[in-house]
């Protein structure tokens, strides 16, 4: 995932690569994800969230739909 100054820059980046523009994430949403994934990473208990947990975490900050589902068949079948 990449950082951009503006939505216009995202669109230009996608256009240059003939890639679809995917949902955008705000800095606040990303900070929430960073905390959820990593705030106990230096401890013995740390682990990556399970797929079902990931769906809940994403949904809690408004990121929903198959793009944010690690088990989404529509993506996995071509991945």
């Amino acid at each position: 995932m990449l950082l951009f100054r503006s939505e216009e820059n995202v669109s230009a980046w996608c256009r240059e690569r003939s890639l679809p523009r995917q949902p955008l994430v705000t800095l606040d949403q990303l900070w929430h994800l960073a905390l959820t994934w990593y705030e106990n990473r230096l401890t013995v208990e740390s682990r990556r969230p399970a797929a079902s947990e990931m769906v809940s975490i994403f949904a809690s900050i408004g990121l929903t739909g198959p793009f944010w589902d690690p088990n989404a068949d529509a993506w996995a079948s071509t991945g």
């Binding site: 990449l2 995917q22 800095l27 198959p66 944010w68 589902d69 993506w75």
Partner: peptide, 16 residues
């Protein structure tokens, strides 16, 4: 996170 004008783009879906 200190508020900063920016957006983040995920080009790859979570399943991949």
């Amino acid at each position: 996170a200190v508020p900063t004008p920016c957006v983040i783009h995920f080009a790859v879906p979570a399943a991949r």
